[in-house]
Amino acid sequence: MTQLAKPSMFENPYRPWPARITSITELTSTEKLFELRIIDPDVREAFHHSDGQFVELSIFGVGEAPISISSSPSKQGFIELCVRRAGTVTTVLHDMQCGDVVGLRGPFGHGFPFEEMKGKDILLVAGGLGIAPLRSLINHIHDERSEFGNVTIIYGSRNPAEVMFRSQFEMWRHRKDFNLILTVDRTNDLPWDGEVGLVTKFIPGLELDPSNTYGAIVGPPGMYRFVIAEMRKKGLHYDKIYVSFERQMKCGMGRCGHCMVGHQYTCIDGPVFNYWEAVNIQGAM
């Protein structure tokens, strides 16, 4: 008695869409930036993301991985993903060439409140690969720069070899409209003309109007507590500090259970939470 129902392709959120790799930039020895274009023009046009959202990237026969969208929503028609070689899917992706095809579904999740941040001063802190989701927000703010007050970006890496998007940031360091602080934990005797020290070192000296500032932090799990503490010392409000979580994820739709944290699903309730939400999630901070 088996019947077959063929749903319209748009109705199936499990279906990855073919996307072509149109550019690959080597960022470090373990990270590459991939530019991807969804092949079907209707699907490509219908794809709109917000800063901090992610896609599920498929390589058929290997599996899927959740990856933050690293390009600004102000750029349509393609997305950029900044991917670390970490396991099976990401390793196969790293071995792919321009012109190869992968699968994409999404975008998923709640991102940063871009519209709400307009008119405010902004303090963004990225550690390591945390620059991937924050880069979307950074570039988006850049594209609508006049809408924002003072913008401070602190980006920390372990050593100079791990600094990503270096040429973009080199150019920005001399701009008056961005206060960009590039720092490394150690120079490892490599040439480096940025700062040395943990990202937290640079927050106390900032001149901020705490009631008018939005903070956002993305980095390794161990970093959040310390950066939040510094932002709180500066007087930033609990609900104006944003963080992004990483968990194992399969579906991206609040169902498969892997990304559960306390009473929330990282995939649909996050991955971006404000600190007030985050401290009220058992086991999150």
Partner: peptide
């Protein structure tokens, strides 16, 4: 089975949703 795919072109081949009344 959510769908079948082709690993040569890296795309979804078929989505059949079996339904038994």
């Amino acid at each position: 089975e959510l769908f079948t795919y082709d690993t040569v072109n890296n795309e979804v081949k078929d989505i059949d949703i079996p339904v038994v009344p």
